[in-house]
Amino acid sequence: MLSKTAYNIKAKISLLPTRLGGRQNPVATGYRPALAFNTAQHYSGEIELLDQPQLKPGDSGTVFIRLIPAKHIRKNLKSNDAFTLHEGSKAIGSGIIVSAEIVSSE
């Protein structure tokens, strides 16, 4: 059986401005983008905004991300690792991990 790893991540993210190909609408707690950690493979995560009620295109903020369990995710994500936020194949932002905690790894 393949293992499934899940993370709780605190990160600083920045959304691209709409004029540079980013989203047109703001995001709020519960938003579920795909995340890529220096790989072509994307993983699903749910974002909780920590310092504001919504994050508009072009803005930055601190978030908590619950990374949904995945079979092939790295088991060594750590502070200062970079990632990109995607909607489908379109990159809509980027982030840097502040802290990462593995919450399950079977």
Rank of each mutant, 00 (worst) to 15 (best):
K56Q: 14
T39R: 15
I102L: 01
L35C: 03
I102V: 02
T29I: 02
N80T: 13
I68A: 03
L15C: 04
S89V: 06
G30P: 11
F64D: 14
A100L: 03
L77C: 02
I13T: 07
N76G: 08
E106L: 09
G58M: 07
A70M: 04
Q52H: 06
I47V: 11
L20Q: 03
K71T: 02
E106I: 06
G45L: 05
R23L: 14
Y7T: 12
Q41M: 14
L15M: 06
A6T: 08
K78C: 13
G30T: 13
F64Q: 15
Y7Q: 10
T62C: 09
L35W: 04
V103K: 04
T5P: 03
P26Y: 15
G21V: 03
G45I: 03
A36L: 05
A70V: 04
L50W: 07
K75E: 10
I9S: 03
L77N: 00
S99Q: 14
L67K: 09
A11W: 00
G22A: 01
H42I: 12
I68P: 01
S60T: 05
P26D: 15
L67Y: 06
E87Q: 11
H72L: 08
K71V: 02
I92H: 12
S99M: 07
G45M: 03
E106A: 08
G45A: 04
P17I: 15
K78I: 11
S105Y: 13
F83T: 07
V63P: 02
V63G: 00
K75A: 06
H86K: 08
E46K: 14
I9V: 10
P33R: 05
R32N: 08
I65P: 04
V27Y: 09
E87T: 11
D81L: 00
Y43C: 02
L85S: 00
P69C: 01
S89A: 09
P26W: 12
A82W: 07
R74V: 06
S99V: 08
N76E: 10
K56V: 10
Y31M: 05
L2G: 10
F83H: 11
G21F: 07
I96R: 14
I97F: 03
D51R: 09
D59P: 10
P26S: 15
D51K: 13
K10I: 11
I47P: 06
